[in-house]
Amino acid sequence: MSDYRPSAHGLLDLYGCPADILRDAVALEQALRQAAHNAQATILSAHFHTFGGHGGVTGVVLLAESHITIHTWAEHGFAAVDVFLCGSLQPQIAAQSIQAALSAQTAQWREYPRGENLFQAA
């Protein structure tokens, strides 16, 4: 039998973030890397893309334990973040770190268990 444990998948909506942060791919990558570190996740790689002008950024930090992604709409002060961590890691720790780094005025956090029924007896 595997040592699989259910995972937690969190969705974080951040409102009222400064546009300059939401356009800065370097700052966003640093924020997501720090969030992964705070959650004790193992970073494998990262890739970020800036849309230019007044647009935002999309990015992913690939983890041994899954991923953290972000999509920003700088013109609206909005960021959508996806935090998927396996095993005993806690995505809310990463979410709190990202919320602080992006100076969000308000946030909405939703967390969903993943794989709970994987090994249930038939």
Rank of each mutant, 00 (worst) to 15 (best):
T72Y: 12
A94I: 06
W73Y: 15
G87L: 05
A80S: 15
L44Q: 14
W109K: 10
T50L: 08
A79Y: 11
M1C: 10
A122K: 15
E116Q: 15
A107M: 11
D24V: 01
F78V: 14
Q108E: 10
F48S: 05
A121Q: 15
V83H: 10
A79F: 12
A101T: 03
C86Y: 07
F84A: 02
T106M: 09
G52S: 05
I68W: 13
L32G: 03
L22K: 07
V81D: 02
G77C: 12
L22H: 09
D82G: 04
T106Q: 14
R114D: 02
F119Q: 09
A95G: 04
A101M: 03
D13G: 14
R114S: 02
E65G: 04
I70P: 06
T72A: 10
A64N: 13
A35K: 10
T106W: 07
E29A: 04
L118I: 11
R23H: 09
I93D: 00
Q105G: 07
A25K: 13
A64R: 15
Y112G: 00
G16W: 08
G59S: 06
S103W: 04
Y15S: 11
L11Q: 11
L62D: 14
A19D: 04
A104S: 08
Q105C: 03
Q120C: 13
G16S: 07
F119W: 13
T106V: 06
A122I: 12
L63M: 08
E29T: 06
P18H: 00
A74N: 11
D13W: 11
M1G: 15
I21Y: 11
P18V: 01
A107Q: 14
H54C: 06
H49C: 09
A104V: 06
A39N: 03
A95N: 07
T58Q: 12
A64P: 08
A80V: 13
A35T: 00
P91W: 05
A46W: 05
D13L: 13
E116A: 14
H49E: 11
T50E: 11
V26C: 00
Q105W: 05
Q34K: 10
L89T: 04
V83Y: 09
V83M: 03
T42Y: 08
L62C: 14
P91V: 02
I98T: 05
H47S: 13
T50M: 07
S66V: 02
G59V: 05
F84S: 08
T50R: 13
W109M: 01
Q34M: 00
P113I: 02
Q96V: 03
Q40I: 04
A46C: 08
R114F: 03
E111H: 02
A80L: 14
D24E: 01
P18S: 02
L85Y: 03
S97N: 04
T42W: 06
F48L: 08
L63R: 08
A36Y: 08
G52E: 02
N117Y: 14
A36L: 04
S2E: 10
A100G: 00
Y4G: 06
A74S: 12
L14V: 06
L118E: 07
Q120M: 13
A31P: 06
P6K: 07
P113L: 07
A19K: 10
A25S: 11
C86G: 11
V81T: 04
I70K: 11
H37F: 01
P18Q: 01
A95D: 02
Q105Y: 09
H67V: 03
N117D: 10
I70W: 11
A107D: 04
T58A: 15
R114G: 00
H76M: 14
A64Q: 15
V57A: 07
I70E: 01
R5W: 05
S7M: 07
L118S: 07
